[in-house]
Design a protein around this nucleic acid. Structure first.
Length: 524
RNA sequence: GCGCCUGUAGCUCAGUCUGGAUAGAGCAACUGCCUUCUAAGCAGUGGGUCAGGGGUUCGAAUCCCUUCAGGCGCGCCA
């Protein structure tokens, strides 16, 4: 149809001409090489090709023999990629928004791994700034109050229940050791104790969510090892730095930022930006080919300046990607729940995991594009968990497992239909896949063969949710098929072929679920 | 004021990058289907000015311009 303009003919006429030529070519081939059953013009000028069934059987067999490897493409070729995600301040428990970032980061990492990239998952710990200090002050104040010394609670202090419990713990451990001492004297103790505890909780929550990080990078460590200082020296050598009003500025506007940014303040203190410069320089030094950051959408104003710095360090623009995760609006009975970390009012990831389960939560987080707002009604997810889309997909997998269990019982020693060969009591039997004659069966095979295409699209666009949608569609086709036809019947040729088809569906479902970080249970 | 994201069925969202056929799911509503492989399922019905307007094109939810609405961000804070 794009030729319409050049040829000055209606699209339908052009399609007709092309179609005739292609039919002729196909006709000339010997029968066994013919790929297509039908080539015809349709609609406003489309050319439809219908593959011969043999094409589908051959590819189904390939899927059964090669299993998961046939679904993946080696796009990454071993290139090192770092995905940094969650990176929540260790000043409180993870909340539901972090959960979304965690689910997306993890799924993206799985996706890239499956595509042959050498992926590292990293968590950046903001353990150096005023926020952890404030956490320390909050715990310190509560500690003093518990022991009867009524010091004022910091104005912007963290007010959640967890502050109380950390303070109680310190009381238990140290008794009155720090009673009536000034924060100046013992602040480090409180700060370190509190944030380390928070960090341990965060790590535990993430583990229970099914996410393991390969590396935890401390912001403090960047300062202590002089990496901050050194990275700034490098920028100075690159003429990226200048002095104005007694402060050191980075020329981020050179690379498209709105304004230049302060790196060292007038008083000689580093800004948060300075640590981030060091951190990203460190990522480069560690030899990553591509750097991916997953941030909350409220940090979008920060993307350009980091990009500028990376470009100043010599990283090509397209080697750095920031995925912005839009906010999660939390609902309870359809009513929005106000969340404030400081005030301690929020739904934690822990609560979500306990109430709806890790699989469900992850799947829901992955049913939307990352940059789209997500409404998460905790009551709906909890009360109607049986109607959750994740069960729909898992159920298809479990159902197939059940079919195989039945097949084993009924026919004695049916083994799993693998590699196009079934073992029976009478020995090994070749499976004739051409027994799959129904249109519904061909449609399922067609769908299965689309997985690698969807997979590649998801990799190139960094959009794991495409896998989620694909799985729901495939599961739907299978459920429908299951209700319409019987897999196990008296016809052993047909049964064998259908078991093979089921096996293939299961392989694809498992591959997809695994990529999303969701389990594939054999029973439900 | 400037920048980024979003606006598609009653609700929640895919589809937009890369323009094509009658715009798709799920939930909610209604009607059927369990003596046979898991009913967490299936079959069916109803439901749309793709936010509005203009433009490009044989063809626009998709590309361009513009208006409106919602969210977020614009510190020598972190």
């Amino acid at each position: 149809m794009s030729l319409t303009k050049t040829l000055k003919k209606p699209p339908r006429d052009i399609a007709n001409d092309l179609c005739l030529v292609m039919r002729l070519e196909e006709y000339k081939k010997p029968d066994k090489d013919k790929l297509f059953e039908i080539i015809e013009v349709a609609g406003p000028g489309f050319i439809n090709f219908r593959f011969k069934k043999e094409y589908f059987y051959a590819n189904l067999e390939k899927l059964l023999v090669e299993e998961h490897s046939s679904l993946r493409t080696n796009i990454g070729e071993g290139k090192k990629v770092q995905v940094e995600f969650v990176s929540a301040n260790p000043t409180g428990p993870l909340h539901i928004g972090h959960g979304r970032g965690a689910a997306v980061g993890n799924a993206l990492s799985n996706l890239l791994q499956a595509a042959g990239f050498d992926v590292q998952r990293e968590f950046y710990i903001n353990d150096a700034g005023t926020q952890v200090r404030l956490l320390g002050q909050s715990v310190y104040a509560r500690y003093q109050q518990i022991l009867g010394n009524n010091v004022p609670f910091p104005e912007d202090g963290y007010k959640g229940d967890y502050i109380e419990s950390i303070s109680q713990q310190i009381v238990k451990k140290t008794s009155k050791k720090y009673l009536r001492k000034q924060f100046k004297e013992c602040g480090d103790f409180f700060t370190n104790y509190a944030y380390k505890m928070m960090l341990a909780d965060i790590a535990q929550d993430l583990r229970d969510f099914g996410i393991i990080f390969d590396r935890w990078q401390s912001e403090r460590e960047l300062h202590e090892s002089d990496k901050v200082k050194k990275s700034i020296t490098v920028l100075r050598e690159k003429n990226f730095l200048y002095e104005k009003d007694g402060a050191q500025w980075g020329s981020t506007t050179l690379f498209g930022d709105d304004k230049d940014r302060v790196i060292v303040k007038k008083d000689g203190e580093y800004t948060y930006f300075a640590s981030d410069i060091a951190y990203h320089k460190d990522k480069l030094d560690r030899g990553f080919d591509t750097i991916i950051n997953i941030w909350g959408a409220d940090h979008h104003g920060y993307v350009r300046r980091i990009q500028s710095v990376l470009e100043a360090f010599g990283l090509a623009k397209e080697k750095f990607r920031v995925l912005l995760i839009q906010m999660v609006t939390l609902l309870r009975h359809g009513e929005p729940v106000q969340m404030s970390k400081r005030a301690g009012e929020f739904i934690t990831l822990r609560e979500v995991i306990d109430e709806v389960g890790a699989d469900t939560a992850k799947f829901i987080f992955l049913t939307r594009r990352a940059d789209s707002h997500l409404e998460f009604d905790i009551e709906v997810a909890k009360e109607q968990s049986a109607e959750n889309p994740v069960f729909y997909v898992q159920y298809a997998f479990a159902r197939i497992s059940s079919i195989f269990r039945q097949a084993m019982n009924r026919n004695g020693t049916w083994q799993a239909a693998e590699k196009g060969v079934l073992s029976t009591e009478s020995g090994v039997q070749e499976v004739d896949l051409s027994a799959l004659k129904e249109d519904d069966e061909i449609s399922i095979i067609k769908k299965l063969l689309q997985y690698p295409i969807i997979f590649e699209g998801a990799v190139f666009s960094f959009e794991p949710h495409r896998i989620t949608y694909f799985l729901q569609e495939l599961a739907g086709m299978f459920h429908s098929y299951y209700n319409k036809y019987r897999v196990i019947s008296e016809n052993s040729t047909l049964t064998a072929a259908r078991l093979c088809l089921c096996k293939a569906v299961q392989i694809v479902l498992e591959e997809g679920l695994k990529t999303l970080g969701v389990s594939a249970p054999e029973r439900m």
